[in-house]
């Protein structure tokens, strides 16, 4: 899987449409007993939230690391990006605040963190 700025911006647009549609989500099952349709509708909202956090985090991270492969930033950049992304959702659309926290690396004599080059 490859990512780049243009693709991620397009994903944001797509997500916009999906989030908009989600505001009008409807269900046929109005029951209170074992309503799996309701559960799935709620979970769909969670998935859209996760997608939003993922896209914003990936756009900001201008490097490649593990499965996050940016064709426009192909190198791993430990100097700027050896850190975890934390995403916080506000109440408005596109209201995602990113924060970061340091990575606690275990000093293992055999397995040293390194660039993925295959």
């Amino acid at each position: 899987m490859e990512r780049d700025e243009a693709g991620l911006r397009k994903a944001l647009d797509t997500l916009d449409g999906l989030q908009d549609a989600y505001k009008r989500v409807q269900m046929q099952d109005k029951g209170k007993k074992f309503n799996t349709e309701l559960v799935e509708a709620i979970e769909l909202g969670f998935l859209l939230d996760c997608a939003e956090a993922t896209i914003h985090g990936a756009l900001a991270r201008q490097e490649s690391r593990g499965a996050h492969y940016r064709t426009d930033y192909q190198k791993r950049d430990d100097e700027n990006w050896l850190k975890h992304t934390l995403a916080y959702k506000g109440t408005k659309t596109h209201d995602v605040r990113l924060d970061y926290k340091p990575v606690e690396l275990i000093d293992d004599p055999i397995f040293k963190p390194k660039e993925r080059k295959y």
Binding site: Q28, D29, T36, E37
Partner: peptide, 11 residues
């Protein structure tokens, strides 16, 4: 059936 015909079908 559940996703396109009858959302109340439960399993």
């Amino acid at each position: 059936v559940k996703w396109t015909m009858d959302g109340t079908l439960t399993y």
